[in-house]
Write a protein that binds this DNA or RNA. Structure first.
Lengths: 214, 214
DNA sequence: GACGCGTTTAACAATTTTGTTAAACAAAAA
DNA sequence: TTTTTGTTTAACAAAATTGTTAAACGCGTC
């Protein structure tokens, strides 16, 4: 026999619900166990320690994020379509898992070592995948001069920050949950136009790409 | 007699060092006491509970942030100079207190109630202070159409996110502490150009404004 | 049915962390 | 000098949280 894949997966899934959807970023092992309706000791049985459970979850979610980005940026889409798709995917994911970015940010801030082995510079970087396209945009004067790094960080800043600062934004601008969601939908257009100063195009995704991003 | 202002202040100051500069976002009362070289019970004597100490610190730092923004955006500077100044101030503050944003984000995420009484929509909002200027920029075609809210959030996203994601950015792009600081300095120009698509102007601050922002 | 094996549970132990309190201390007031 | 008031300390208590363990359980196999 092997370890019960189902239970192990259940624990991870329910922990993710707590972290990414309910926003209990410092949920205790007991709270995780409760959410999964299992005995707390099982968490230690399958993951040894709370720390290791966190590591597994962090690794999974960062991998997935990276896989998505890679799929988009190495697809056959036109450059601006890639960006449009990226914006759509990030914002949609944010709406689905509102605290996922908070989790990543807070875990990597708590222990920067984690970031190192999660995103070693040796990996395929999205910045490398867009460098040529970006250079062309800049050369033809369609975009101001900047490195691929700055470009990607501008992009992900505008996509992610509104989720990180959710409570503040909601209260400063007096938004309800509903108007906040509407606001985030609008941002897709806004972000694209902030970057390219033109309307965001409709993008047809290949079924293959669609499935990777779902 | 009154409570010893000096000791109370010392505790707050040292707590801020831990939170904002050293990045120990979940420092215990003992660690705070150690940093301030005082007995842990003093923290309870002056602030009653850890929670209340956190509240006081959060309130102070958000107030100060808001005061700065208000000073800039109600100054006599030209609109684009205001933005240039804002970018400079935020990035410089970030370099000085690298984890300050992490603190605000994580505290307001942990308990959204806090955000409500920190930034009630009744207050003077920076968005209101730029609305007219922004409308003019848009009307004259210098800027794509967007609300003041989206504009401000684009701006603060690009200013703040790089600090929040510090560890990830450093490790993805293989930066040292030094090259990361250089990178952030460069961003001032980059952010300004991303918004206005032109070089950032030199701004002369009035001595009064200078002192508020120091 | 008894055995073996992975899974699950309840109970326990250890640690960490917060909060309380009584007493010591320092300095100004009486 | 004694008293009073506010400050600081050490010791204690209580709660929360993580990690361990021995026993119970379910189930397929001998």
């Amino acid at each position: 026999m092997v370890k019960d894949q189902a239970t192990e997966e259940l624990i991870k899934e329910k922990a993710k619900v707590l972290f990414f959807q309910k926003g209990f970023l410092d949920a205790t092992t007991q709270e995780i166990a409760d959410e999964a309706k299992v005995n707390r000791a099982l968490i230690h049985y399958y993951f040894r320690s709370r720390e290791q459970l966190m590591d597994v979850i962090l690794e999974e979610v960062v991998s997935r994020k990276r896989a998505r980005a890679k799929a988009i940026f190495s697809s056959s889409l036109a450059f601006r379509e890639k960006i449009a798709t990226y914006i759509n995917v990030i914002v949609d994911q944010g709406l689905l898992f509102p605290y996922l970015e908070n989790f990543i940010i807070s875990e990597t801030a708590r222990d920067p070592e984690r970031a190192n082995f999660l995103c070693s510079p040796a990996r395929t970087k999205t910045t490398d995948l867009i460098r040529d396209d970006l250079a062309l945009e800049i050369k033809t004067g369609k975009l101001g001069p900047m490195t691929a790094e700055h470009f990607m960080i501008n992009l992900s800043s505008m996509c992610n920050y509104p989720f990180l600062a959710k409570s503040i934004l909601k209260s400063v601008h007096g938004m309800t949950d509903q108007s906040y969601r509407k606001f985030l939908q609008d941002r897709k257009q806004i972000i694209y136009r902030a970057i390219f100063n033109e309307e965001m195009p409709e993008v047809q995704l290949t079924p293959e790409l669609k499935s990777i991003l779902s």
